[in-house]
């Protein structure tokens, strides 16, 4: 996801990080606006909790700044490293929470009264239903499904992030998708997709 003023900025992340390490404050700002939303979204999908995802995102970005001067160009993509750090921080949190499923934020969204609100509410309801179903998946399946189907990464990159083989990633995503389909299938009338396909 790109922030509005980042839309036409195709400078590679790694180039900006090198500029940051050399003392370029503008590069830090561009990286912050480009990467923080992505890290937050990934953490939220793995944790299912907004407040905790913000804490993880802050910590992941802090680690990025700390190791900027030691970053070795060409060794790995910055996004791969960041996904891995974010996932590890999320896993640590969930383990510290003794394996309990973290509830979704309790604060309700204000009602949407703009044109097209019904469609947006349906989309929003689907996003929430998916998140609830993701929260019930085993950790590795959830991570693989999120990276493959929401972040849109290819299996070899997911394998690098997860420290697993491509075959293992394929197996995890297949099992994860099946579990999601089973969980969401029970709610299809409620979520309004039965009449769409």
């Amino acid at each position: 996801m790109a922030m509005p003023f980042d839309e036409h900025d195709d400078t590679p992340d790694e180039t900006l990080l090198a500029a940051f390490a050399a003392g370029d404050a503008a590069a830090a700002r561009r990286l912050t606006f480009r990467l923080t939303p992505r890290v937050l979204a990934h953490a939220f999908r793995l944790l299912g909790n907004r407040a905790e995802a913000e804490e993880v995102a802050q910590e992941a970005m802090l680690r990025l700044w700390r190791q900027a001067s030691e970053w070795r160009a060409g060794e790995a993509r910055l996004s791969t490293w960041l996904y891995r750090v974010t996932a590890n921080l999320c896993i640590d949190r969930r383990r510290r929470a003794k394996g309990g499923t973290v509830p979704l934020d309790a604060v309700p969204e204000p009602p949407d009264t703009q044109p097209g609100a019904a469609e947006r509410m349906q989309t929003h309801a689907r996003a929430e239903a998916l998140q609830a179903a993701l929260n019930e998946l085993p950790e590795r399946q959830r991570q693989a499904v999120v990276l493959r189907h929401i972040e849109g990464l290819a299996n070899p990159e997911i394998a690098m992030i997860m420290g697993a083989s491509v075959e293992a990633v394929e197996s995890l995503t297949t099992r994860g998708r099946r579990a999601l389909a089973a969980a969401l299938g029970t709610r299809k009338e409620e979520l309004g997709y039965a009449d769409e396909r």
Partner: peptide, 12 residues
């Protein structure tokens, strides 16, 4: 069907 949910997550 699942893709509809993934799309919704990406949109939000």
């Amino acid at each position: 069907r699942l893709e509809l949910f993934f799309e919704a997550a990406r949109a939000h």
